[in-house]
Amino acid sequence: MRETVSKFLDYLKTEKGSSQNTIASYERDVNNLINYLESNSLTIGKITNTNLNSYLINLEKMGRAPSTISRNVASIHSYFRYLYKNDMIKQDPSSNLLSPKIEKKLPEVLTMEEVDILLSQPSDNDCKGIRDKAMLEVLYATGIRVSELINLKKDDININLGYIKCNDKKKERIIPMGQVSKDALSNYLDHAREIMIKDPGEDILFVSCLGHKMSRQGFWKIVKSYANKAGIYKKITPHILRHSFATHLVENGADLRSVQEMLGHSDISTTQIYAKMSNNRLKEVYSKAHPRA
């Protein structure tokens, strides 16, 4: 069996052009399988689907994570497909092998109270604070991606009608804004942007302190600094206000189709995670508040 593993690894390297990390993972997974099979006196020609399922059950008993087991299944599939296609075995025992279901981890979100505290941190006494306030308010008001936020152009906003126009890779989205975000944006346009820009022809809406387009990393640092200032020690990412926007909308009765459209999700199954988060929150509230919970 060891010879077949060497040939399989050569195939991954020379014919499939797999990365070193992929080859190393497959080598480790397949060798662990071979060790298990040899300890049970099994040869290549006698391996069955039942044997492979027993191996996966053994991994589970050893406490391996579902993601690790799923990767092992992929390695085993690839190995036995190679053996079968090269006539080293008469049938592929891995053909009906199924990966364990990996439950998607719910994203971190802020509570409504934490959002209020975070968005109250920027100062309105200087251009940077006014800009930061507007960026945070627009992000939470619309749920757009950080990449979309930093790429907004001045012509993409209509404060009078209260909406922004967002162009993602697939289509254009029109997203409404509330009064608070409109006020913050107006304050930025009236009292900060013209001072911050270096080129009068600059069309990017939110500019850095150097007067040019801001980077994702630059905005991430802004969010993190205000979170620390606010005493919020959750894992802060540039996406946290987008997740919070969607979760709070669903918690307050917004229908999933509308949230899907505002977020720009092509598949509603992606949006349904926020309904699950809302349900979890309702259960938590119930268990704390109901006298017979």
Rank of each mutant, 00 (worst) to 15 (best):
K101F: 02
Y11Q: 03
S19G: 10
N32A: 04
N21L: 15
T68Y: 08
L56Y: 09
E60L: 14
T111G: 03
F80Q: 00
L98I: 14
E15S: 04
L56W: 09
K85T: 10
I102R: 12
N51M: 13
K105P: 05
G45R: 12
K13A: 08
I57P: 00
K104C: 00
Y82C: 00
G63F: 13
K16A: 02
F80R: 00
T50Q: 11
K7G: 02
N51R: 13
I102Q: 09
Y79M: 00
P66F: 10
E113V: 12
I57S: 11
T43N: 15
E103A: 11
S18Q: 09
F80C: 04
K101C: 01
V5L: 15
I57V: 11
V30K: 00
S54P: 03
M62G: 11
K61L: 08
I76A: 07
N35D: 14
S75D: 01
V5R: 01
E113W: 05
N58V: 05
R81I: 07
L9R: 09
T4D: 12
L59P: 06
S54I: 11
F80V: 01
E3P: 01
H77D: 05
S41V: 10
R64G: 10
N35T: 09
L98G: 03
L59Y: 07
S39T: 15
L42P: 03
T14Y: 01
L98M: 13
M112I: 09
N96T: 04
K46D: 14
H77F: 14
